[in-house]
């Protein structure tokens, strides 16, 4: 069974009296462990598709199945539980909680998932901080971290609960080239070690280089679906 299954998915937004069709019949299957990039021009439906795949929104038509669950049939609480247990998010502007330290931002995701004891939680967070190269910075608040460091915290937060799926929306948009490579390498490493599925929405060719599958969206439809070799460095 594929991790993600989209069948004839449509999404229509009502803006006043005008209907805007953001997605127009998407069919897509994504297997566990894929490292996929969705790209396309602004307004092509990338973020809308990511919202649906991330159970942040429901489709107007068609079905979106995540790990076998059709999100159209889930209520708000069930969608929250699905996100809590199975989906990690990485945002362009990091979206860290400013009043929490790096350690707390990461452990918060684990705590609400209530997956571990306190000592296990501490060990897991420190291991992950080490893995993303943030050892020693655990007590810093987001305001005291650089862009790259913040994105690493965001990656660690997305991965700490060992989700089946990680969605990253423009994860390198605010980072310089070197930091972008570092961040992508960390995600690739996690993908390989934990077999976590990553889906990126991006304009950044650097992110596309790392992907093993490229999906191009145009006018709410998948115009290209290509399997490729990832960058080696």
């Amino acid at each position: 069974m594929p991790l993600l299954n989209l069948k004839q998915v449509t999404k229509v937004y009502q803006q006043g009296e005008i209907k805007v069709e953001a997605l127009r019949g998407i069919d897509l299957e994504i297997e566990k462990g894929e490292f996929t990039t969705v790209f396309g021009p602004s307004g092509s439906g990338k973020t809308t598709m990511l919202n649906l795949i991330g159970a942040l929104d429901k489709p107007t038509g068609g079905t979106v199945k995540i790990n076998g669950d059709s999100i159209g049939k889930l209520n708000k609480n069930e969608l929250a539980l699905l996100r809590r247990n199975h989906i990690g998010f990485i945002f362009q502007s990091y979206n860290l909680i400013p009043v929490l330290s790096a350690f707390e931002n990461i452990s918060f995701a684990l705590r609400i998932a209530r997956k571990n004891s306190k000592s296990e939680e501490k060990e897991k967070v420190f291991n992950l901080l080490k893995a993303v190269g943030l050892e020693g910075l655990e007590n810093r608040r987001p305001a005291e971290l650089s862009g790259g460091q913040k994105q690493r915290v965001a990656i660690a937060r997305a991965l700490i609960k060992e989700p089946k799926l990680v969605l990253a929306d423009e994860p390198t948009a605010n980072l310089d080239s070197d930091t972008s490579h570092e961040v992508m390498k960390i995600m690739l490493k996690m993908n390989k070690e934990l077999n976590t599925t990553f889906i990126f929405s991006t304009h950044d060719p650097l992110v596309m280089d790392y992907a093993t599958r490229l999906l191009e969206l145009r006018d709410g439809r998948i115009s290209k679906d290509k399997i490729k070799e990832p960058a080696t460095n």
Binding site: K76, N95, I97, A113
Partner: peptide
Amino acid sequence: KKEIGTMASLGLKDKE
């Protein structure tokens, strides 16, 4: 709003 959205995306329920 964005922070609340982030918390919701992390899986925080309405009542939380």
